[in-house]
Design a binder for these strands. Structure first.
Length: 588
RNA sequence: GCGAGUGUAGCACAAUGGAUAGUGUAGUGGCCUCCGAAGCCAUUGAUCUGGGUUCGACUCCCGGCACUCGCACCA
């Protein structure tokens, strides 16, 4: 068998061909359903025979036998094949096949090529809309998941061959600015502003908000400030710009720690002059109607949205996020030629997304535009250990910068305990990678649909399915190569490798070759936890191998094949962690 | 009230309609003259409930129950 990157896809294609070769009735209807198998049964299994045989009133085991007999010779040479149970076909890759694959797919570039080659994403333009904080406020724990999940998904899509446009749809327009400006004019603390301008803007907003709540006169004054801003008053506009600059600077500090860089930061204000077209087109199409003074879209065919309006212009004439989201959608189609848009937004905004997508669908159909694929990448809330949304003791949102600082601090403690021999500067650098990586990984390792409990001890105590466990495996592999004065992936070190032999070698090799399926599943479902799970299991296989079989042995062929396994494990772990947005280390 | 999400071991999680429901922690018992013990090996313990569909259901459908969230101008 030639060096297919993705064995499951290859077996699937070969089984389909076999169905035709064997002359199966209605062979086109046979779907092999090849997937990674429980290792007790082999490496891959085809489940499709059962359904096919049932539908065609055939004996499934007989069909399976026929298919196996009709399989092309290369596949039969590469695998041990068995029909089992009611009609499963099990494939176990032979040691030589494993070795051939590991030798052939040897570097990052090769993996990228393999992953993109037959990917349905290849060449597609994907806009990933994630993070999207509001200006004048610090990012807090509520902004964590969108940023972390969004970045991982963007990287997975790139790996799958898509052209990804990362767009940070910042909330930089809205009613809050009237209150901030009002408070800025009266209650600015210049010293605090010099120290941390964003913190001061945030304080001013809270002060302005509280004052407006308490006194209707203040509310009117704040609204006047907003009107002036919207009319282009130079002072207010300058202040608004300043808020934007300060905020973006602070956001970038967070993004730097998380390894995020956007291609665009087209905030809501960018769409100010683009919403009129939305109103006009939706009204002309008969989609938008006046209701209680607002411009809204109802969906009569929908049980709920025939009553629950999608408000695209407020009764005071101002735009809201429905207006700008529609304008944004159009802009992304026209300027980014989006084939798909992924909205990484928390699940509470499910109704908004549904209404947005429904409205866009009708709008685009009515104006002969091509609607891109629209995906709401929804996710649950970050909870504290009591099962309530995570807050500080005083009930405030936890600032992201504080959260990341605490992660690094806790990691630094641990590094000090475990690796006190390393220089302090390196311990700090390690703590940054381990601390931030632990937060990212804890978020990603869990199915994004559910809420998740944020528990420092589980996250950073470094046991189980955690970033530290994976980073530790990476560090140990680097250490092996360091001891031998070799570079990982050095072909000379792998030359003359003997055949894979021990149980631990084979178990590790069998795990390694399934990297493509793990990435593919995570990408297709836009769920990074599938990749996390794979990497964790891979690190587990490596640790078992490491305990069972010594790498640095005298016997040259044995040593070479074990170095090959180490190098590929390192490659998959580093590549996989990179796809999740984590950094890795050589020592920790 | 309508809708969405979530119910799996003490706790935290996994399982694309597939074979004996996997893991981690915590508990118990082993393993460092040997490449990093932040490790490895072994072991105890679970699908909210009642129906249905299917060769096969944690998964799909219908009805309950529990928790969380959303539902007219904040995003």
């Amino acid at each position: 068998m030639d060096l297919s990157f993705n064995f499951a896809a290859r077996l699937d294609a070969d089984l389909q061909a076999a169905a035709h070769a064997a002359g199966l009735a209605d062979a086109g209807a046979f779907v092999p359903e090849v997937r990674v198998a429980d290792s007790r049964h082999g490496d891959f299994q085809a489940n499709g025979v059962l359904g096919y045989a049932k539908a065609h009133r055939l004996n499934p085991r007989a069909v399976a036998d026929q298919l196996v007999a009709a399989l092309a010779a290369p596949v039969r040479d590469a695998c041990d094949i068995a029909v089992a149970g009611p009609g499963f076909i099990n494939f176990t890759l032979r040691p030589a096949t494993l070795q051939q694959w590991l030798t052939g797919w040897a570097g990052r570039a090769a993996l990228e090529q393999g992953a993109a080659e037959n990917s349905p994403l290849r060449g597609q333009h994907w806009v990933v809309d994630y993070s999207s904080p509001n200006t004048a406020k610090q990012m807090h724990v509520g902004h964590l998941r969108s940023a972390v999940i969004g970045e991982a998904i963007a990287r997975l899509l790139v790996f799958g061959g898509a052209r990804v446009i990362r767009d940070n749809h910042i909330g930089d327009w809205g009613t809050q600015f009237g209150k901030i400006i009002w408070a800025y004019r009266r209650h600015l603390d210049a010293a605090a502003f010099a120290r941390d301008p964003l913190e001061e803007f945030e304080r001013l907003y809270k002060a302005g908000h509280a004052a407006a709540e308490a006194d209707p006169a203040v509310l009117r004054e704040a609204q006047q400030e907003l009107v002036k801003l919207q009319a282009g008053d130079p002072d207010n506009l300058a202040l608004w710009k300043k808020i934007g600059e300060v905020s973006r600077g602070a956001f970038q500090q967070i993004y730097d720690r998380l390894g995020i860089r956007f291609d665009h930061e087209l905030g809501e204000s960018f769409y100010n002059d683009k919403v009129a077209q939305v109103y006009a087109e939706l009204t002309a199409a008969g989609l938008a109607v006046e209701s209680q003074g607002a411009l809204v879209v109802f969906h009569p065919e929908h049980p709920r949205y025939r009553e629950q309006p999608f408000i695209i212009r407020k009764s005071d004439g101002a735009a809201n996020y429905a207006s700008t989201d529609l304008a944004t959608l159009l802009y992304r189609c026209e300027h980014f030629h989006a084939d798909a848009i992924a909205y990484v937004i928390d699940s509470r905004q499910g109704d908004h997304c549904e209404q947005l997508f429904l409205t866009a669908q009708k709008w685009f159909a009515g104006t002969n535009r091509r609607l891109p694929r629209l995906e709401h990448i929804s996710f649950g809330t970050v909870l504290g250990e009591g099962g309530r949304p995570l807050k500080t003791k005083s009930g405030e949102n936890i600032k992201l910068k504080d959260l990341l600082a605490e992660a690094e601090e806790r990691a630094f403690q641990l590094v000090g305990e475990r690796s006190s021999d390393l220089p302090e500067a390196e311990r700090h650098a390690i703590a940054a990678v381990v601390g931030v990586g632990s937060v990212q990984y804890a978020d990603l390792a869990q199915n994004r649909s559910s809420d998740y409990v944020f528990a420092w001890d589980k996250m950073i105590s470094l046991e189980g399915n955690t970033a530290a466990y994976l980073l530790y495996a990476v560090a140990r592999i680097h250490s092996i190569f360091r001891k031998l004065s070799l570079e990982p992936g050095d072909r000379a070190a792998e030359a003359g490798a003997g055949g894979l032999d021990t149980a631990a070698e084979l178990a590790l090799a069998r795990k390694l070759v399934k990297f493509p399926e793990a990435v593919q599943t995570a990408t297709a479902q836009l769920r990074p936890h599938f990749l996390c799970l794979y990497l964790y299991e891979l690190a587990g296989e490596f640790s078992a191998f490491y305990a069972a079989d010594k790498v640095a042995v005298e016997d040259a062929p044995v040593r070479a094949r074990r170095l090959l396994l180490c190098a590929r494990t390192l490659l998959m772990l580093e590549t996989g962690l990179g796809l999740l947005g984590l950094r890795t280390l050589q020592r920790m």
